[in-house]
Amino acid sequence: MKEFEIVLKVDHLSKKIGKSLIIKDVSFELSRGEILGLLGPNGSGKTTILKMLVGLIKPTNGLVLIEGHHINKEFEKAIMHVGAIIENPIMYDYLSGYDNLIHFFRMTDQFSSKRIDEVIERLKMDDYIFDKVYTYSLGMRQRLGLAQALLHRPSILLLDEPTNGLDPEGIKSLRETLRKLAREENVSIIISSHILAEIELICDSVLVMDDGTCIQRGLLSDLQEGTSTLQTYSFKVLNGEKLKTIIENKLDHNNIHYHSSGFSIELMIHDVAQLNKLLVSSGIDVVGIERTGSPLEELFLQTVRGEGS
């Protein structure tokens, strides 16, 4: 695999509906094996961009290249590399999940019963795959849609709010599945979501949209470094009887909130280790440190809403 090999190129993409320009000169690239988070408030243009990437909407200006193929001029060659769940997956309710997968997979020239079984096992759908789809929960439908999108071994996966309807265990399982696809099979993934915590946990990079415009694009780690690094950390301690005395005698800090198991404090990230050393050397047993604020949330608010500037 070539390092930073580009699998998707979006160049000066715009979309006008009537007199309204809803997507405004958006450009970005996606590397092989990269997981990109597409962030933005409702109405920012995220779903419209995804629809243009799969040819459901034709752009007014600009181009989309998938594995070097123009999505509008070479649609079949381009789309064969893409798997997508955009809005709610459409399934045949009175067929089983398994029969739905057979039906959709037979539309390609890659049909394989073995591949269907592989995807079912990977997504842990064995318990309900032979049930009728009308009995499925929303989360089960989401997983079936993901199975359908993966059958033909796409190199690019586009997911619009993929965690909708999933319980915490399902979200964790999906997160692990997507990371394995990216790391082990070099699948490139774009996830459109409003759940910042999930984007922060899974994505390598983010593209922030607002009012049809790309206003931030970069590696997640780099963008986070551009925010204020003052974050809230919660310290959990065992023997906190003299905690308050030690902190107030040795620490010049006003933003401290004590609770039954310890305290919360606003710190720069490099000060966390120093405070931990101070507490331990003073005889305080620190059993846990947890960041309770999200740098990505701060970035999002600063960038989209202009807060904190």
Results as ranks from 00 to 15, higher is better:
Lys2Tyr: 06
Phe4Lys: 15
Ser14Ile: 11
Lys15Trp: 00
Lys15Gly: 04
Lys16Ile: 09
Ser20Leu: 07
Val26Met: 02
Ser27Trp: 09
Ser27Gly: 06
Phe28Gln: 06
Gly40Trp: 02
Gly43Met: 06
Lys46Leu: 09
Ile49Lys: 07
Lys51Gln: 12
Leu53Met: 05
Gly55Asn: 10
Leu56Glu: 14
Asn61His: 12
Ile66Gln: 04
Glu67Ile: 01
Lys73Cys: 02
Glu74Gln: 14
Phe75Tyr: 15
Met80Trp: 00
Pro89Gln: 10
Ile90Leu: 07
Met91Cys: 13
Tyr92Lys: 13
Tyr92Met: 13
Tyr94Glu: 14
Gly97Val: 06
Phe105Lys: 09
Arg106Tyr: 09
Gln110Asp: 14
Lys114Thr: 14
Asp117Thr: 08
Val119Met: 06
Ile120Asn: 09
Ile120Tyr: 03
Leu123Asp: 00
Asp127Leu: 07
Tyr128Lys: 05
Asp131Asn: 15
Val133Arg: 09
Ser137Val: 04
Gly145Ile: 07
Gln148Ile: 10
Leu150Phe: 11
Arg153Ala: 06
Pro154Ile: 03
Ser155Arg: 10
Pro162Glu: 02
Pro162His: 04
Leu166Ile: 11
Pro168Ile: 11
Glu169Gly: 14
Ile171Cys: 12
Leu174Arg: 13
Leu174Met: 15
Glu176Thr: 12
Thr177Met: 05
Arg179Asn: 14
Leu181Asp: 09
Glu185Ser: 09
Asn186Ile: 01
Ser188Glu: 11
Glu198Tyr: 11
Leu201Ile: 01
Leu201Gly: 06
Ile202Arg: 00
Val208Gln: 07
Asp211Val: 01
Cys214Gly: 01
Cys214Ile: 03
Ile215His: 00
Leu220Pro: 12
Leu223Ile: 12
Glu225Phe: 01
Glu225Met: 06
Thr229Leu: 15
Leu230Tyr: 05
Gln231Ile: 00
Val237Ala: 05
Gly240Glu: 11
Lys242Ile: 01
Lys244Met: 10
Thr245Trp: 02
Thr245Asp: 13
Lys250Ser: 09
His253Pro: 07
His253Ile: 14
Asn254Arg: 13
Ile256Asn: 11
His257Met: 12
Tyr258Trp: 02
Tyr258His: 03
Tyr258Phe: 15
Ser261Gln: 13
Glu266Ser: 04
Met268Tyr: 11
Ile269Met: 09
Gln274Tyr: 01
Leu275Tyr: 14
Asn276Tyr: 06
Asp285Pro: 01
Val286Asn: 07
Val287Cys: 10
Thr292Cys: 04
Gly293Phe: 02
Ser294Arg: 08
Pro295Trp: 02
Glu297Phe: 07
Gln302Asp: 12
Gly306Arg: 10
Gly308Leu: 10
